[in-house]
């Protein structure tokens, strides 16, 4: 018998679903109904001809629960394929943030400098404000937002994570 002494790990659950109105509701209903956590969620159509969408959900759970999530999601009728990507599985995970900073003078200059270092692009600017666009791994976005906080961080809008396996492997 296996003994289970596992600690939770972060994972992206990538789900290829039929592009129909109830599919997203079924997936997120499964998460809330079974008490699984959703830290971020993205969904968009990825294949118009075959009417398929991709959902990415970031969650934290023990490997055994992750396997259970995978199996539960996989048995949903509109789900084509599902993969669970943890740090152990080579994959790329990115998200995008729009970050509004309201600042002037010294703090405005600091914000711009830091944005350059992070390769965040100002996509909107006024006399008193900036909107930066920043893409990257979640921790990079977190770090940038933390740095903006004392400089006049006013509002954040994030997409949530999109992920894909490295190499030739496909979902």
């Amino acid at each position: 018998m296996t003994t289970q002494q596992e600690s939770p790990v972060s994972a992206v659950i990538s789900i290829q679903v039929e592009n129909e109105s109830g599919a997203l509701a079924r997936v997120i209903g499964l998460f809330s109904g079974r008490g699984y956590n959703i830290e971020s969620l993205t969904v968009a159509a990825v294949d118009e001809t075959r009417r398929q969408s991709r959902i990415n959900i970031v969650t934290t759970a023990t490997p055994r629960v992750l396997e259970q999530i995978r199996a539960q999601v996989d048995r949903l009728v509109p789900v084509y394929r599902v993969s669970v990507m943890t740090a152990a599985d080579p994959h790329v995970a990115r998200e995008m943030a729009l970050v509004k900073v309201i600042a002037s003078g010294e703090r405005r200059a600091d914000a711009l400098r830091i944005a350059q270092a992070f390769r965040a692009h100002p996509v909107d600017a006024s006399a008193t404000s900036f909107v930066f666009e920043l893409t990257g791994a979640t921790d990079k976005l977190d770090a940038f937002i933390d740095l903006m906080r004392p400089l006049g961080l006013a509002e954040v809008s994030r997409t949530g994570v999109a992920a894909i396996a490295r190499g030739a492997a496909i979902l």
Binding site: R64, Q68, R75
Partner: peptide
């Protein structure tokens, strides 16, 4: 059923290892 070697057959893959880890 402590200590038993467990075999579990089910048509629904999500039932396997859901409650009791099996061999």
């Amino acid at each position: 059923s402590p200590g038993s070697f467990k075999i579990h057959a089910d048509i629904d893959p999500s039932q396997i290892n859901k409650i009791v880890p099996v061999d």
